[in-house]
């Protein structure tokens, strides 16, 4: 790389580093602020005395969350949908991507199936017909309403393109040795595509953890709300009267510190997997992060 030692260059570098450092801190500041509020006692938070450091440090907000059965239940539902949803979508994505990664000559009808999949990216029935389908299938208030349809066309296309990079010789050798497609997929393709599959798994898990709208419309009983949906009723939908009131919820509506703690709890799992996510950003780009 070119290195020059003139003052304009140095000035640019200084400005650039300071500017980007500033942006980084700006992105971090709201989260630090949130954490500080959640660790302050409610009087300090309500009085507006907290900026980036807790005032009258306390764990009381987190303790009341831990003691709330409603939050505990919502948390478990979120864990359940994330684990189940990610596993199912990953399995479906793998077994769908494999046949589609074949050429139309090797796999008759491949192009028709491909179009059936891609068309779902171009056109959709929309919210109301989708809701009616879920309802008529009796899936309201079941975890399945949050997990189906289970397969995203984008993930399939990404994995299919990855499968196409697998050397043909490996597959031909396996098939000659009498291996079935099923065995070839799981013994050759999947082990060679671990980075792609891990990327899809992490992104699917983040998606499931963060999803809240499906919980809101498909769960008519708020005892079935996943965490993000529950959180929404507390921190955003302040005027909702249709919700059965849990003691913690009533407190949270009036207590800023408790609300902050709840928001923070909902982000903790994301922060925990963030270091793993980072590793796969590059794979994500390679797979074509054009469409998040």
């Amino acid at each position: 790389m070119v290195r020059e030692k003139d003052w304009r260059n140095t000035l640019f570098d200084v400005f650039n580093h300071v500017f980007i450092l500033g942006l980084g801190l700006l992105a971090l500041a709201p989260l630090i602020n949130l954490l500080a509020i959640s660790l302050s006692n409610s009087a300090a938070a309500m009085g507006g005395y907290v900026t980036f450091w807790p005032v009258n440090f306390t764990f009381e907000n987190y303790l009341s969350i831990v003691k709330s059965p409603a939050i505990y239940r919502a948390f478990l539902i979120s864990v359940e949908r994330t684990v189940l949803g990610t596993a199912i979508s990953l399995f479906l994505t793998i077994i769908t991507a494999y046949p589609l990664s074949k050429s139309a000559r090797e796999f008759k009808g491949r192009n028709i199936f491909m179009w059936l999949l891609v068309f779902t990216l171009l056109f959709e029935g929309g919210l109301i017909p989708y809701f009616m389908v879920i309802r008529s299938l009796g899936l309201l208030n079941t975890i399945w309403a949050l997990i189906v349809p289970g397969v995203s066309a984008w993930s399939v296309i990404l994995l299919m393109n990855f499968f196409r990079e697998v050397p043909r010789e490996l597959e031909e050798a396996a098939l000659l040795d009498g291996a079935s497609h099923w065995q070839t997929l799981w013994r050759i393709y999947v082990p060679l595509s671990v980075p792609a599959i891990a990327t899809l798994a992490l992104f699917a898990a983040v998606w499931h953890w963060n999803a809240w709208f499906d919980g809101m419309i498909f769960m008519t009983d708020n005892a079935n709300y996943p965490l993000q949906t529950y959180l929404r009723t507390v921190v955003i939908d302040l005027n909702s009267t249709t919700i059965q009131m849990d003691v913690t919820k009533v407190d949270a509506l009036s207590q800023r510190a408790l609300r902050a703690a709840m928001i923070f709890v909902a982000t903790v799992p994301i922060m925990l997997i963030y270091p793993f996510l980072q590793r796969y950003f590059v794979t994500g780009i390679k797979l074509g992060a054009v469409k998040g």
Binding site: L116, E124, G125, V133, G150
Partner: peptide, 16 residues
């Protein structure tokens, strides 16, 4: 996947 697409993507499309 085709069955799921039929139920959860194509049936709602018909639902328009």
């Amino acid at each position: 996947t085709l069955i799921l697409l039929a139920i959860f993507a194509y049936y709602p499309m018909y639902g328009v």
